[in-house]
Design a binder for these strands. Structure first.
Length: 781
DNA sequence: GAGCACTGC
C-alpha cells in the first residue's frame, strides 16, 4: 500500500512486476480533482461527445451540459478568454510552457510536441498562438508563374488544427469557443457572416457540418477536410499555421497531409509570397523520432538548392497519470475465454466496488463481436452462480456495429448500487470512446486488423498481436480516474516480442485513393512523394495500373479529365468511376447508382445481422419486399428507395426490418451530397424532389445498373466452375459468397462482387448476379 | 453461415 502511495505522488509510471517504468509521453494524464474535472479541456471533452455524437451536434455541449444561449457568448474581451474557464486552463501542465511554445515558433517553422491526450494540447496550443504576429493575415504579391500575371493575394490569418475523427473536431471547437468566450455560429456550408453574427474566434469544418464564423482564427477540421482544401488551395494560403493533432494514429490522410506540408515548408515559399507556414505536429506517444526526422530533412528538390533545411524543434510536455499496475500471466494462456472469466471473477470477488476516486469497473479488450458475445454469455452464466451476498455484475458489449443506444449504455453509470460494470470492447475503446469509471483493464493482447494484400488484390481481416504502444494505450485506460490495474492475458516475454508501434494504415490498405489524391494535387512522380512510411513500390505500381484501367490516368501516368472528375467525389476511385458511367446515356442510371453507393459507403452494413432463427423469422416478411434476386446491389437500391419514400415513421420502419438507422441516416446524407456534386458537375439537371413514390426497378434497368457497376469492378468478377465453386476471373482464386449476402448459397453463371475479404476463408461481399458475356464487354470498355 | 476502427465540399 505504501508503495502505491509513493508512486501516486510521482505519477506517470507503470509497474511491471517489480519494475517501475516511466510513461512519460505515452498515456500520462493529469489526475483529476473534483474541481478541475468539470471543466477540464482536452480529449476528455472530446471523449464525452464521442459517446453521444448526436447530442454534440444539437443542444448539448461537449461536457453534456446545456448549451448557453448565443447572447451569453457575446465577447467582452475576446482575446482574454472567458474567466469562467481561466482557472482550469491555468492548472494544465501545458500552461506554464506557453511562452516557450510561442518563442519556439517565432524562430522555427516546425514544432513536434509530445503531450498526453489529457494535457489540453488540443485546446490550448492554438489559443497560445493565434495572436502571434506571424499569425496575422497579410497581402502579398505572388510571383507570376509562366503565362500568368502577377497578383496580390492574402496569405495567413488562420490556424488549422486537424483531427482524425469528426466528433473530436466539432467537440474541441465547441470547447475552445466557450473558453474564448466567443460564439460558434455560422451557417452550414461556411460562415458568410450574415450581419447579425458577432465575430467568432473559433470554427470547424467536417463533412456535412461546417461552422466558420466571420473572423475565425482557429479552425478545427478533419484530416480529410484539409486534404480537400488542398485541392483548391495548394499552398494553404488561408493559414498561418497547421496543427496536426493525434499524428500517432497515422491514418492514411495524416500521412498524405504530412507529405504535402513537408513540400510546402521545404519549398521556396513562392506560392505563399514568401510567408512561411508554421507546422505543429502533436502526438500522444513519445516514439516520434521518425516523424521528427521526416520533417527535419529537406524534401525532394530541396536538397539540390542551397536552401537551408527547415528546422524542427521538439518539446515534450510532462504529464501526470495515476499509476497502473501491470500484471502479466506467468505462462501463456491456452484459452482466452477461460483466462478472461477467471480474471474477471477474481477481481470482482476480491476488490471493492468503489473507493475514494470513484467506481472500480472493468474494461476488457477483446478482438471482435463474436468473442465479445460468447464471453458475455459465459460471464452471465457464471455470475448467476455467485453467492447471494456478493455484488452483482452487469455486462455491456461495446463494438462499432452496435446501435447508438446500446453503445450508450456502456457509458452510463450503472443502475442499482450493488453492481459492478463489465465492459467488453473491441479496439473502439482504445481511441474512439472513453468508458468512465474504469479502474481495471483486461487486455487479450490481440486485435482484428484489416490488411490489403496488394499482390492478391484482396483484403484480410484477422486477429493479430497488438503493438507495445497499443498495449500501453489499453493499460492507460485503467488510470484515468484513479490508480488502476491492467491484467494482460499474455506473458512478459510475449509483450517484449511485440512491435513497438502499429503498422501505419498506409502500409496495410489499398492505396488507390491515396495515389489518385496525390495525382490530383499535382504530384507527378508518386514514387518520390515524401511519405513517412512509403508503401512497397509494387503496391504503388499496382495502384497506378488499376487507376489506368479505371481511366483516371493516361498512358503516361498523368491524371485524365476523368480522373479529375473522380476525385471530386468522396468515394473510392472504383465507385467514382461507376458514378461517372451512370450519367452516360448508355447506362442512364445515375439516381439508382447514387442510392446504392450511398448505402454501401454509409457504414459496415445497413442490415443488422441476425443471430437467431427467431429474429430471422420475425423480419422475414418485412425484408422479403426489399430483397432482389439480382443480388445485394439491387437490394440496397430497393431499401433506399423504400426508406426515402417512407414518410411517416422511419425509425419504426428500420426497427421492423432490423436495419441500422444510424447508417441509413448517414446514407441519406451521402445521397444528398452525391446528388449535389452530380448537379455541380453537370451530370444531372437538378436534385429530384424527395420523397418519391416507390416504383420497382425493372429487370432491364437492373441489368443496366449492374453493367454500369462493371465499369469500376470488372476485375472483381467470378465464374461458376464445373465443381460448383466460384473462381475469380483475375487470379483464379476460389471464392465463396459471404453469408451476409442475399445470394449466399446460390449458384449462378457469373457474379460481380465489390469486396473480397479473407476471414475464415476467401469471401465475396456485396455480390450481384451477372452474365459471363458482360465481363468481356466491360473489359473492352 | 459470419461482422476491428476511422474518414471524404
Amino acid at each position: 500500500m505504501s508503495k502505491k502511495r509513493k508512486n501516486d505522488a510521482a505519477g506517470n509510471v507503470i509497474r511491471i512486476g517489480d519494475k517501475v517504468i516511466s510513461l512519460e509521453g505515452y498515456l500520462t494524464k493529469k489526475p483529476k480533482t473534483e474541481d478541475s474535472r468539470a471543466s477540464e479541456p482536452g480529449s476528455d471533452t472530446a471523449d464525452a461527445a464521442r459517446q453521444q455524437p448526436e447530442s454534440s451536434k444539437t443542444d448539448l455541449t461537449p461536457d453534456g451540459t446545456k448549451k448557453s444561449s448565443p447572447s451569453e457568448f457575446v465577447p467582452s474581451r475576446p482575446p482574454a478568454g472567458d474567466p469562467q474557464y481561466f482557472e482550469a486552463r491555468k492548472a494544465l501542465p501545458l500552461w506554464t510552457r506557453q511562452d516557450e511554445i510561442r518563442r519556439i515558433l517565432r524562430q522555427k517553422d516546425v514544432l513536434v510536441l509530445v503531450g498526453e491526450t489529457g494535457s489540453g494540447k488540443s485546446t490550448q496550443v492554438p489559443q497560445f498562438l493565434y495572436q502571434e504576429k506571424w499569425c496575422q493575415r497579410r497581402r502579398v504579391r505572388i510571383k507570376p508563374s509562366e503565362g500568368e500575371k502577377a497578383q496580390e493575394v492574402s496569405v495567413g490569418g488562420m490556424i488549422a488544427i486537424t483531427q482524425p475523427r469528426r466528433v473530436a473536431a466539432t467537440t474541441l471547437a465547441h470547447r475552445v469557443s466557450r473558453e474564448a468566450g466567443t460564439p460558434l455560429t455560422g451557417q452550414k456550408g461556411g460562415g458568410d457572416g450574415n450581419g447579425a453574427d458577432s465575430k467568432g474566434l473559433v470554427g470547424y469544418s467536417v463533412r456535412f457540418d461546417h461552422r466558420v464564423p466571420a473572423g475565425t482564427k482557429i479552425k478545427y477540421l478533419t484530416e480529410g477536410m484539409l486534404l480537400q482544401e488542398l485541392l483548391r488551395d495548394p499552398y494553404l494560403r488561408q493559414y498561418s499555421a497547421i496543427i496536426v493533432d493525434e499524428i500517432h494514429e497515422r491514418s492514411v490522410d495524416v500521412d498524405l497531409l504530412s507529405g504535402f506540408l513537408k513540400q510546402i515548408i521545404s519549398g521556396d515559399k513562392a506560392g505563399r509570397g514568401g510567408i512561411p507556414l508554421k507546422v505543429v505536429i502533436m502526438s500522444a506517444t513519445a516514439n516520434v523520432e521518425g516523424i521528427r526526422q521526416f520533417f527535419s530533412t529537406a524534401g525532394p528538390g530541396g536538397s539540390k538548392s542551397n536552401r537551408p533545411q527547415s528546422s524542427v524543434e521538439y518539446l515534450q510536455i510532462e504529464g501526470r497519470q495515476f499509476p497502473v499496475d501491470i500484471i502479466h500471466t506467468p505462462k501463456p494462456v491456452p484459452d482466452i475465454q477461460e483466462a478472461l472469466l477467471k480474471t474477471i471473477f477474481k477481481l470482482h470477488t476480491e476488490e471493492a466496488l468503489s473507493d475514494k476516486y470513484g467506481r472500480k469497473d472493468i474494461l476488457a479488450f477483446l478482438t471482435g463481436q463474436e468473442e465479445i458475445e460468447s464471453a458475455q454469455k459465459l460471464i452471465e452464466e457464471y455470475a448467476s452462480t455467485l453467492a447471494p451476498g456478493l455484488p452483482k455484475v452487469k455486462v455491456f458489449p461495446l463494438f462499432g456495429q452496435l446501435s447508438m443506444e446500446a453503445q450508450h449504455e456502456a457509458f452510463q453509470p450503472i443502475k442499482g448500487g450493488h453492481t459492478r460494470k463489465i465492459v467488453l470492447a473491441t479496439n473502439i475503446a482504445e481511441t474512439s470512446v472513453t468508458v468512465p469509471g474504469v479502474r481495471y483493464v483486461i487486455d487479450c493482447g490481440k486485435a482484428k486488423l484489416k490488411q490489403f494484400r496488394s499482390r492478391l488484390g484482396m483484403e484480410s481481416l484477422l486477429a493479430k498481436p497488438i503493438s507495445k504502444s497499443s498495449a500501453i494505450q489499453r493499460a492507460g485506460r485503467a488510470g484515468r480516474e484513479g490508480p488502476g490495474k491492467c491484467y494482460r492475458l499474455y506473458t512478459q516475454e510475449t509483450y517484449d516480442s511485440l512491435y513497438d508501434r502499429d503498422l501505419p494504415e498506409i502500409l496495410r490498405t489499398d492505396i488507390l485513393s491515396a495515389i489518385l489524391t496525390m495525382k490530383a494535387r499535382g504530384v507527378q512522380d508518386v514514387f518520390s512523394f515524401p511519405l513517412m512510411d512509403p508503401p512497397q513500390p509494387e503496391s504503388v505500381e499496382k495502384a497506378l495500373l488499376h487507376l489506368h484501367i479505371l481511366g483516371a490516368l493516361d498512358d503516361n501516368g498523368a491524371i485524365t479529365e476523368t480522373g479529375r472528375r473522380m476525385v471530386q467525389f468522396p468515394v473510392s476511385p472504383p465507385y467514382a468511376r461507376v458514378l461517372l458511367a451512370a450519367a452516360e446515356p448508355k447506362y442512364d442510371c445515375l439516381l439508382e447508382v447514387i442510392d446504392i453507393i450511398s448505402c454501401i459507403t454509409a457504414g459496415e452494413d445497413i442490415f443488422h445481422q441476425l443471430r437467431t432463427e427467431e429474429a430471422r423469422e420475425e423480419v422475414e416478411e418485412y425484408r422479403k419486399e426489399l430483397f432482389r434476386r439480382e443480388g445485394d446491389l439491387l437490394t440496397y437500391l430497393t431499401t433506399m428507395q423504400l426508406y426515402a419514400a417512407e414518410n411517416t415513421d422511419r425509425v419504426k420502419w428500420c426497427k421492423d426490418r432490423k436495419i441500422n438507422l444510424r447508417n441509413m441516416k448517414q446514407a441519406l446524407n451521402i445521397r444528398k451530397q452525391l446528388r449535389g456534386l452530380c448537379v455541380r458537375q453537370g451530370m444531372m439537371e437538378q436534385q429530384p424532389p424527395d420523397p418519391q413514390p416507390f416504383s420497382p426497378t425493372s429487370p432491364e434497368q437492373a441489368s443496366s445498373i449492374l453493367k454500369c457497376f462493371l465499369t469500376g469492378f470488372s476485375i472483381k468478377t467470378a465464374i461458376l466452375a464445373p465443381d460448383n465453386s466460384y473462381v475469380t476471373s483475375h487470379g483464379k482464386h476460389v471464392i465463396a459468397i459471404h453469408p451476409a449476402s442475399v445470394l449466399h448459397g446460390q449458384k449462378k453463371e457469373a457474379i460481380m462482387f465489390l469486396e473480397h475479404v479473407y476471414t475464415q476463408k476467401s469471401y465475396a461481399k456485396k455480390v450481384s448476379v451477372i452474365q459471363a458475356v458482360w465481363i468481356a464487354e466491360a473489359l473492352e470498355g
